[in-house]
Design a protein around this nucleic acid. Structure first.
Lengths: 222, 222
DNA sequence: CCAAAAGTGTTAGGAGTACACCCATGG
DNA sequence: CCATGGGTGTACTCCTAACACTTTTGG
């Protein structure tokens, strides 16, 4: 019944250059000094775990209002060599258009790494990132988390690229569009993206409709 | 960075009389004295969260070797009126044939309640049970957790009753049997259950095959 | 011979997958 | 007029869901 230290750690994902990236910060102090770790810190006495995760993310990346979800709680006795630390791990998603918000970041050495090329991580953080990747891949197929990685306005090709980056495989363009269309969760805008070539139709996520879909058990079958 | 109390709480499920039941213990001391709660207790310094969950379950129900899975971690600042307590919630499944093991239970006032008729629960335990029910329903459809609620040898009707109890709806007998058959995860035994009427074929779960199925992404489509 | 649960196939509709060409634009 | 990415439809297969009767046994 002894008390223990409790932290939250957050795996922040985004899409850059058509690849899924995770944000890592370089540790300045032992243990694991010089190694990369996922952002996180101690839970305060008067805040919930969710609040702590939001606060830590804001303090270390100056990012707010992201999709945030609790992942799993890791509590092996010696996962931190200094003392017993229980960590509630979270993952978060941010649209690539909001990356510039990172400018004022507190943590001097924060960097995006492609999830395919992660460096050696401190503590058991590799396990946490792997778990987050697995959860993200699963949730992509039956929820709308994918939209959290896009700006408010996006093209169908951009949406497909999010799915391809996370699932790690090419999808058929026509099948992808038909299935998304059947879900009726996208609202076409009166705008097009001027991109050098043929302009592409822009859409936004129409979340209102999704509630009804969930009740009917209609999902994302990729 | 202050330290906090950390507990594990476990929702133990079983099937009785074709209905899903949860095990609750009556609290003898304040707060919430006299009310029912789910079994749980403090995590010790040198044990992992999983180990703590197994130990608490054993101490309060004298049950071992059950299916056990971490659910979610609840950490609202005032969920325990006495002090800050973080709880890693688990759920566990036990086959109905092992209920007699409960005889030597430590907790004097442990009782099974149908999940449809739960009493008022202490702390935020109602939220925990609801979350466990949701997880169980979801996992039933794409994993083999359902078998954990059955004895080693069971009939197809018994298996179907597990699915019906948890999903809360009747399933078509022929469709159910065809789908289970296609998965090829059941081994028919050279035994039948003599049950007064026409004897039913007994099966056991052939877990070996399931590994391969998971790799292929073949699931339980009910 | 009656009651009770076990066991068994077919059909129609919907979803998934594979696949190739034309279109609009800027340079 | 060419290069680039945007946009579109069909055919086949497979899974799902709906549906009713016969069999075996004990009493």
């Amino acid at each position: 019944m002894q008390e223990m230290k409790v932290t939250v750690d957050v795996v922040l994902f985004t899409i850059r250059a058509r690849a899924l990236h995770a944000l890592l910060v370089r540790r300045g102090v032992p243990p694991f000094a010089g190694q990369y770790a996922i952002p996180g810190g101690f839970v305060r006495r008067e805040e919930s775990l969710d609040e702590a995760a939001k606060r830590e993310l804001y303090e270390e990346t100056s990012v707010r209002d992201v999709y945030l979800e609790q992942l799993y709680t890791f509590g092996e006795p010696h996962r931190d060599p200094r003392s017993r630390v229980i960590t509630a791990a979270y993952y978060a998603l941010i649209g690539s258009e909001r990356l510039d918000l990172m400018a004022g970041a507190d943590a001097a050495e924060a960097r995006w790494f492609p999830t395919q090329e992660l460096p050696k991580l401190a503590f058991d953080h590799r396990k946490i990132v792997d778990y987050a990747l697995e959860r993200l891949r699963n949730k992509l197929e039956y929820t709308t988390v994918g939209f959290q990685l896009l700006p408010e306005k996006f093209t169908l090709t951009e949406l497909q690229e999010v799915y391809e980056a996370i699932l790690g495989k090419k999808l058929d363009k026509r099948n992808f569009r038909r299935k998304i269309g059947l879900l009726r969760i996208l609202k076409p805008l009166r705008e097009r993206r001027e991109t050098g070539r043929k302009p592409a139709q822009l859409f936004r996520f129409a979340a209102e409709r999704f509630v009804k879909l969930k009740e009917k058990g209609i999902l994302f079958p990729f």
